[in-house]
Amino acid sequence: MSPAPERPVTRGHSSPVVRLPRKMLGALAPPTWPGTVERPLPRSHVGTDYDTSWSRTPVARLARAMITDNITRPFVRLAAAPTVVGAEHLDPLRGPVIFAANHSSHLDTAIVLSALPVRYRHHCVVAAAADYFFDRRWKGDLWSLALGTIPMERSRVNRRSVDLAAELVADGWSVVIFPEGGRTTDGWGQEFRGWTAYLAKRCGVPVVPVHLHGVRPIFPKGGNRLRPGEVEVRFGAPLRPLTATATASEGGHGREEDARRFGARVEQSVAALADEAETDWWSARRRAARGETPDLRGPDAAAWRRAWLLPESRRSNAGVRRRTPSAPW
């Protein structure tokens, strides 16, 4: 007898949601698969294999526009009361751009979408973690409809997802990306991953740095309830990779800025926006000019000191929760 077919690693979408007992189906019960015949693995339809093209059809776009304007934005106004700063940087922009924002909460996507000008709001996709938002078919369906998400691997550059993003940009779609690859656990930022800069260079579109200030106290990672508060959404000046002449004039190597350096510049711009949110525009500018902008990733010190020095706007309301034995009365 040949070995029993392996359990598929990912769930096939052909399997019925509810399986009726064979007895109830009687003669209509599906035939059983012979043990001697190898069973093919079903095609995966989740993770980066999830096909989001349906969510960009006119009908789905219309539905999403309704959801964004009638559900998402009112909800964000109630929970986070966003103030938008620096929207003027977006005025001269036409055509697709990449929005790169810091990430501390599930609310971030909704807040960014709410803050975008109409022409971008209804014509953009959001790069979302394939392992979290697309691990079940229904989740993929839900998020790609409501927020226009596309699956993206968190940690490595996945050809399939970058190709998809590049295709979309070429098609005129803007992309919202959280380059940290996940929400912060301790309030301090994480290293920006490479694909933002890579995508921008490949498609030749500008990157707009975005900083969200004060979201973590409202709903941090691991939080179990929403504590409404106020946030600031700050857009920075669009960034493009320096041209060969520019690098040369700065005394550099005279080649076009590479993805790594460009990515670092994007991260610095977001950090400068963060500094501006904590203090004021002028002192943040001066620090940026001196190269003294506080690192988003926080000091390189013991965990308690990192926590101790965390600004109020990035603190969590969740903390550690373990079940406390209840009193027996």
Partner: peptide
């Protein structure tokens, strides 16, 4: 207080 608790408890300190 929450400030001390949140700075130390999550790190096992």
């Amino acid at each position: 207080g929450s400030r001390v608790f949140d700075a130390f408890a999550p790190h096992g300190l």
